[in-house]
Simulated assay, not measured.
Amino acid sequence: MLFDVLGLTEEEALTYRALLARPSCAPAELADEFGMQEPKALCMLGRLEQLGLAARSGEDTSRFVASPPAVAMGVFLAQRQNELRLAELELSSLEETYRASASGRTLADVVDVVQGASAMRQRFEQLQNGARREVLTFVKAPMLVVPPEENTAENVAVARGVTYRAVIERPHLEDNPALLAEIRDLTARGSQVRVVDSLPLKLFVVDRELALVPVADAASPADSGALMVHRSGLLDALIALFETTWASSHHIVAEAGCLREIEPGAVDEEDVQILSLLVAGLNDKAIATQLGTSLRTVQRRVHALLHLADAQTRLQLGWRAARLGWI
């Protein structure tokens, strides 16, 4: 990580490590260790010398010695820190310029058109990389931008403290057996996920400042596109739509610790997940697929939950579960 921050290549980092491990080193010795030609080894050592990470030996100028890491790299770090401070100042200036121009946007300037799957993917990743506080999203099939398993930018954003709130369309949950595991992972890291029967559109809002609205045709991925909505009444309407949908959606409970039981230990993780998916509207077959278990097991556990909640029907089970604080 340190070498990456300092801008050294992998070869330069390996060469410096090798040099640190010995009092001095000749190009021929380095070439033997790494299986390279001696001229290339000499070039690598010369590069480290230029960077201040190595110097010629006083006794034999054909040999090289490593510069002390704290001294050599301290200079690099100070230089990088200064560059970052200057970049932050420039970013603030650019942001002020952008905000000033945004306030004068006309109706035609409120929405940008993003054309092509590649451009959509790039904007999708840029928005997540630039997120500072929260991301609001509607998730529905088909996934034409970035499949969940490939969305590494989301993991990075969550790791730095960005909150994700996602509403998933029920058919999309039913058709993706691996989705529940991803939901468990997201909720464990602080994100919130809910399910609703249907969604009017796909939506991705970042920091309540920008929204990406895919308008793609599943039959023609090459013609995929999206609308980038800037601060405006339209963006406010999209955020209001999200909040209204969020308020009426079903929470997905993935862990037994989130549920208040009648009896300690009476309900385990799988029971919680079955109950949560049942209330979200999934049928027994879809629940079994999500949990990787059999239809018979799901039906047996639902029967046990009915008994535990003293309910006669599944409708009554949902009502009793809500009254008992299970969900």
Rank of each mutant, 00 (worst) to 15 (best):
V5I: 14
E12L: 11
A13M: 04
T15W: 01
Y16R: 04
A18F: 13
A18T: 06
L20H: 04
L20K: 02
R22K: 15
S24L: 15
A28G: 00
A28F: 05
G35N: 11
P39N: 02
C43F: 15
M44K: 05
L45D: 03
R47Y: 10
G52D: 04
A54K: 00
A54P: 02
A55W: 12
R56L: 04
V65R: 08
P68C: 12
R80I: 15
Q81G: 07
Q81K: 15
E83M: 09
E83H: 08
L84Y: 08
R85S: 05
A87S: 14
L89M: 15
L91C: 15
L94C: 04
L94I: 01
E96G: 06
S103L: 02
G104F: 08
D109V: 00
V111R: 08
V113Q: 02
R121M: 00
Q126K: 02
K140G: 04
P147A: 02
G161C: 05
V162M: 03
R165M: 03
V167W: 01
V167F: 10
V167M: 02
H172W: 12
D175Q: 11
A178Q: 10
A178T: 03
E182Y: 04
R184E: 12
R184M: 09
D185C: 09
D185E: 09
D185M: 14
R189N: 01
R189V: 03
V196S: 08
L199M: 06
L203A: 06
D207V: 07
L210Y: 11
L210G: 05
V215A: 14
D217C: 15
D217Y: 14
M228P: 06
M228Q: 14
V229W: 00
V229N: 10
V229G: 02
S232A: 04
S232R: 09
A240K: 13
F242H: 00
W246M: 11
S248T: 14
S249N: 11
S249W: 08
I252H: 07
A254P: 02
E255K: 15
A256G: 09
R260A: 13
R260Q: 14
P264K: 07
G265S: 09
V267C: 00
D268L: 13
V272N: 01
V272D: 00
L277E: 01
A286Q: 06
T293N: 05
L295Q: 01
R296N: 09
T297L: 11
T297F: 10
T297K: 13
H303E: 11
A304I: 02
A304R: 15
L306N: 03
L308G: 06
L308C: 06
L315G: 07
L315A: 05
Q316V: 09
G318Y: 04
G318R: 14
A321Q: 05
R323N: 13
